[in-house]
Design a protein around this nucleic acid. Structure first.
Length: 429
RNA sequence: GUGGCCAUCGUUCAACGGCUAGGACUGCAGAUUGUGGCUCUGCAAAUGAGGGUUCGAUUCCCUCUGGUCACCCCA
């Protein structure tokens, strides 16, 4: 049998997906809540391009990070320039800060952004190649209070979208003055024990020593738990800073876990780092968000030395949790009436009536493309509206409209110019 | 990037290697004149793609694509 010649069926790329209703209601709620809250906290919105010079991330996020070395989407232009799809938001915002002279505005500059990020890695639950982040960045102030305020924002946002069972893990990595010394202590510690750790840890020992601290391998746990912690090797300034952050959090009564194993995968962090997790293991893969202070990044990227602190939240994962936790979002518009029309005249008048209702603030549903009254009534019933407004040939000629109470079935014919008034009277009851 | 599991209408579940790939839900259209809920009837809708084995493949084999889980790592 000759098979029908099939045209190519298009398919979203691996790790990419469409956001569809009704899920988009959760997205809207989350983003709206985040933006409103950010503004309340004195942040202003910034948007930066999704494509940047690859070098920006190589130097910003860090050439040795997995994000850049293994997961970044590179684009080569005809001219040979190396571009990249942004794998995270911060370097772009830093670039914008420097390029647009935001440093000469009153500091600190508090910015928030929202947008897609791209990482070419193996997709998995809670892990997409295009995913969305909502982030905050503060430039130009080194005060510990800002670290705390960012965490406070996160705490409030999760609360506001109905996700209360979160854990905040916090740690301090120190600064260029004290971190090298700590690194040496950690390396020494592991070097004496390297025969007893897993193969991965042997690799980490060479490539990324700080990562030794979040090994999950059973046999490494005893060694890990005794490992020197960065907080015990902070310089005076870093210790003071960290202590202040914690005091502010205590003052705000925001619960947190001191987690000396917290490392984070980006090179630019200094001092405070934190991550937010869902309380129930397994329900949410990985962190819901994370951030920290990056006092050297602006300078590293060619700007004046500028202290900064920020956070990025993984919206895909947060939305997934909102769904799982059945957070109420009020996705359906609360239609009050349904416009039923019959005949061309009725349709015309209905359009006009819809306009009038809209202006009066009465949400009216309709199915203008449908001609059968039965079909329209059926939809009105499904939507659960209180009243149906029936406007047919006869009513169009008379300048009237029938108001039908969907529960009782009682109908009343009223002049079109009185519909709004009549409806309002009925809604008051 | 490596490995395990998986892939049938929009959704969900069927089909010993063999009849026109079946049901449920959803969708659409109807059940006489301009009125919803219940009920009934009809219609639409799928074997991810490409090869192979076979008289015959949704079913067995291979490749690809995608999903999922684990590792790596992260949001």
């Amino acid at each position: 049998m000759p098979k029908k010649k099939k045209r190519k069926e298009f398919q979203a790329l691996k790790g990419m997906r469409d956001l569809l209703p009704p899920d988009t209601a959760w997205w809207d709620k989350l983003i709206k809540t985040g933006e409103d809250l950010a503004r309340d906290f004195g942040f202003q919105k910034i948007e930066t391009p999704v494509i940047e010079d690859a070098e920006l991330f190589i130097r910003g996020t860090g050439a040795t990070t997995d994000i850049v070395s293994k997961q970044m989407y590179f684009i080569k232009t005809a001219g040979g320039t190396s571009l990249a799809l942004r794998p995270e938001g911060t370097p772009g915002v830093v670039r914008a800060y420097m390029e647009n002279g935001l440093a000469s505005l009153p500091q600190p500059i508090k910015l928030f952004y929202f947008g897609p990020m791209f990482r070419h890695e193996q997709p998995q639950a809670g892990r997409w190649r295009q995913f969305y982040q909502f982030g905050l960045e503060v430039f130009g102030d080194s005060g510990a209070v800002l670290d705390a305020q960012i965490i406070q924002f996160c705490f409030n946002l999760f609360k506001a979208v109905g996700l209360k069972k979160i854990n905040i893990h916090i740690n301090s990595l120190g600064c260029p003055q004290c971190r090298p010394a700590y690194r040496r202590v950690l390396l020494d510690y592991y070097r004496y024990r390297k025969d007893r750790v897993c193969p991965d840890c042997k690799r980490r020992l060479k490539e990324n020593p700080l990562r030794l601290l979040d090994c999950k391998e059973e046999k490494c746990q005893p060694i890990k738990s005794q490992a020197p912690a960065s907080v015990d090797h902070l310089c005076d300034e870093c210790r003071k800073h960290f202590k202040e952050v914690l005091e502010f959090l205590d003052e705000l009564e925001i619960p947190y876990f001191l987690n000396s194993a917290l490392v984070r995968g980006l090179d630019y962090y200094t001092k405070t780092i934190f991550e937010i997790f869902w309380e129930e293991e397994g329900l949410a893969p990985g962190a819901l968000g994370g951030g920290g202070r990056y006092d050297n990044l602006v300078k590293e990227l060619g700007g004046k030395p500028t202290p900064a602190v920020g956070v990025a939240l993984g919206l895909d994962r947060i939305v997934a949790l909102m769904k799982k936790e059945e957070v109420k979002v009020g996705s359906e518009p609360n239609f009050k009436v349904f416009l039923v029309q019959l005949g061309l005249m009725g349709k015309k008048k209905s359009l006009k009536l819809f306009e009038k209702l809209h202006q009066a603030g009465i949400l009216a549903a309709e199915s203008l493309s449908r001609d059968s009254i039965k079909a329209q009534m059926k939809i009105a019933d499904k939507l659960g509206v209180k009243f149906a407004l029936i406007l047919g040939q006869q009513e169009a000629l008379d300048g009237t409209v029938i108001i039908r109470d969907m529960q009782s079935g009682v109908q009343e014919t009223v002049p079109q110019e009185k519909v709004v008034e009549e409806l309002k009277k009925r809604f008051r009851k």
